[in-house]
Design a protein around this nucleic acid. Structure first.
Lengths: 168, 168
DNA sequence: CACTAATTGGATAAAGAATATCCATAATGG
DNA sequence: CCATTATGGATATTCTTTATCCAATTAGTG
């Protein structure tokens, strides 16, 4: 009943991309360094985000990854499903049918159990589809002006502090 | 994001116990045969139910397992937590702190993410604590009179059909 | 009391999924 | 054409789930 680490990693990647200067795609090797995993593994994670439509990637010189859409349009559900596939709690191995041979009752029971769990699935789907990456960034950083920076050079607090000064 | 097969197995066990003549505990070896797993594995599963307070087991000749309380008092949450421990979706490896070194913002972000996920946990907990084993049995069998039988000898439909005839 | 049926609990093996890496190939821009 | 970067397949590693075996224990039975 736990999400995989991949979800956490994906969320970190999204934070990086959301605060990256939009002109410059961020190289996956740079992300891998920052998250402490191998470049090739990071490319796999990123690939999942690309397939899901969360990120876009360009090969070649000065290539890299960037967000496919505004952070406000990226939901936690998108991220979770990108990494783990559709939310579906019940393993459903058909055990009930195997254990009780009375077809008449087991089919009804099986169906009932499926519907109980899929109702649980729906609760999560509904909840997570309402939380966006933008929500996380806004509340986490304490500012709705998303700072942009080049993650090759700068740190986060440099930029946020600069924005704060600008506001005065 | 999937429950383990153990949950499904536990649910089957509970159905067996709920429809077992209360006088006679059901031998775990009998259950293992029916669910198609090894006797020793079944004992481990049952042990978890005992620890959680869902079932009680008696050693010795003619010993076995029975429910610790009425099916109406056994919730899906009990069953899930018996098999998998507390519901907690977020793996929380502290990756955010590792990836972004600005303590000031990462701690806030970490905390926020935890709260987002624990809200998801709460949704599931609330939902699953409202579905009881009795609900499943009642709707699954189409009768609220729980038939009782000895699983060593009889089949489910024998007994339910008998009960139906009695109703007339 | 000793015997037998049955459960408990610990050690551990086997299978599967998640995590991670390496390497060969393809795409891109200069 | 060359350096840079992503893609995709094969594979190693680690962790969890699933499952088995066996020694210890407990409760009834003769």
């Amino acid at each position: 009943m736990q999400l995989t680490k991949g979800v956490e990693q994906a969320l970190c990647i999204i934070v990086l991309l959301a605060t990256q200067e939009s002109s410059a795609p961020l190289a996956s090797d740079e992300i891998s360094k920052r998250l402490g995993v191998s470049p090739s593994y990071m490319k796999k994670i990123i690939r999942k985000l690309v397939v899901q439509g969360i990120a876009v990637s360009v090969s070649g010189n000065n290539g890299g990854v960037s967000l496919a859409k505004p952070a406000a349009d990226i939901t936690m559900l998108d991220v979770i499903e990108a990494m783990e596939g559709p939310i579906q709690m019940y393993p459903d191995t058909g055990l009930i049918g195997l254990a009780f041979h009375d077809k008449q009752y087991t089919e009804k029971g099986q169906e009932l159990l499926r519907s109980v769990f899929s109702q649980g699935d729906r609760l999560l789907i509904e909840y997570f589809s309402k939380v966006t990456a933008a929500d996380l960034l806004k509340e986490g950083l304490g500012t709705s002006n998303l700072p942009t920076l080049n993650w090759n050079r700068e740190t986060l607090s440099d930029v946020i502090d600069k924005e704060r000064d600008d506001d005065k």
